[in-house]
């Protein structure tokens, strides 16, 4: 991270509960403009909670901490307001919206961003076709109902297609690699790489190192039990691939014993 970098996204001491159970137990995270961060961790470590809570899912209760994006406090804003400010979440399990076509859905989402509430149909069509071409998506996609009867791979492609069309400044990708065969993974990764720019930051949430062969992160974090317990470069992901998560657990355990402190810092 260079000195002239600007934090685009800052999470401080974020504590979050669902149904009274504390899932995130003090997360700190700073992402600068243009950076790609990966959060790795096992199932149940709190990664997906992180994704949802950053977008303002109503079921999660924020107990403490702050989330700042472009210097604005996000926790006071509704999900749609965060989205219109340029945040985006690619879902692990995208919802189907029967009866609403992909084209209509994207058109409405773009219109919601305009003060005039208008987006020229011709221009929209051109952009959509271009994006579908880039992602190797059949043109019939546009007239299908959103995620309705889509295969796992199609759903993930639609998430990336939406990211292309909405051009967010901060993208959270929640397990976008899960359930994809190698070809689909490559296509999706190419899409993500094509979106990479100096202004745009991304947070990849994954529990496999596999996707990081295709999308190279600047920073890798390991999440365990609702906290970020290690932060490093791509080599951290490679170590995890080789040794699994257990060695971190062991280290944490030793640290705890040695210092007598209940929490472990990375």
């Amino acid at each position: 991270m260079s000195d002239n970098s600007h934090p685009l996204f800052e999470v401080q001491n974020l504590k979050v509960a669902i149904d009274g159970n504390e899932i995130l137990r003090g997360v700190d995270l700073t992402i600068n403009e243009g950076e790609i961060h990966a959060i790795m961790g096992r199932n149940g470590s709190g990664k997906s909670t992180m994704a949802y809570v950053l977008m303002g899912h109503p079921h999660y209760e924020v107990l403490d901490g702050s989330v700042k994006y472009k210097g604005l406090d996000m926790l006071d804003l509704d999900t749609d307001e965060r989205a219109r400010l340029g945040m985006f979440l690619a879902f692990q399990y995208p919802m189907s919206i029967p009866g609403v076509t992909v084209a209509k859905f994207l058109h409405s989402a773009l219109k919601a961003r305009e003060e005039s509430g208008e987006v020229a149909v011709r221009e929209f069509r051109t952009n959509l076709n271009e994006a579908m071409n880039l992602l190797g998506v059949d043109s019939s996609f546009a007239s299908r109902y959103v995620n309705d009867g889509f295969s796992g791979g199609e759903k993930k492609r639609l998430e990336i297609l939406q990211m292309f069309m909405l051009e967010p400044d901060f993208c959270i990708l929640d397990e976008t690699d899960s359930g994809l065969d190698i070809d689909a993974l490559k296509t999706v990764a190419e899409g993500v790489n094509a979106m990479r720019s100096e202004q745009r930051s991304m947070l990849l949430i994954t529990h496999y190192q596999r996707v990081l062969n295709y999308v190279k992160p600047d920073v890798v974090h390991v999440m365990m039990d609702g906290k970020i317990v290690r932060t490093g470069g791509i080599e951290l992901a490679e170590t995890l691939e080789e040794n699994g998560y257990e060695w971190i657990e062991q280290e944490l355990f030793q640290n705890t014993e040695a210092t007598g402190i209940g929490t472990a810092e990375a």
Binding site: P58, D78, T79, D80, M95, I97, G99, V100, L166
Partner: peptide
């Protein structure tokens, strides 16, 4: 379905617009 509403809101649709899209989709077939 609140999850559908949330999904649409993450794309920038205000709640009422999201509900409206779901209602239109419900009637469409």
């Amino acid at each position: 379905d609140e999850e559908q509403v949330f999904y649409l809101m993450t794309r920038g649709l205000p709640r009422r617009a999201a509900e409206r899209a779901i209602v239109e989709g419900f009637f469409a077939p």
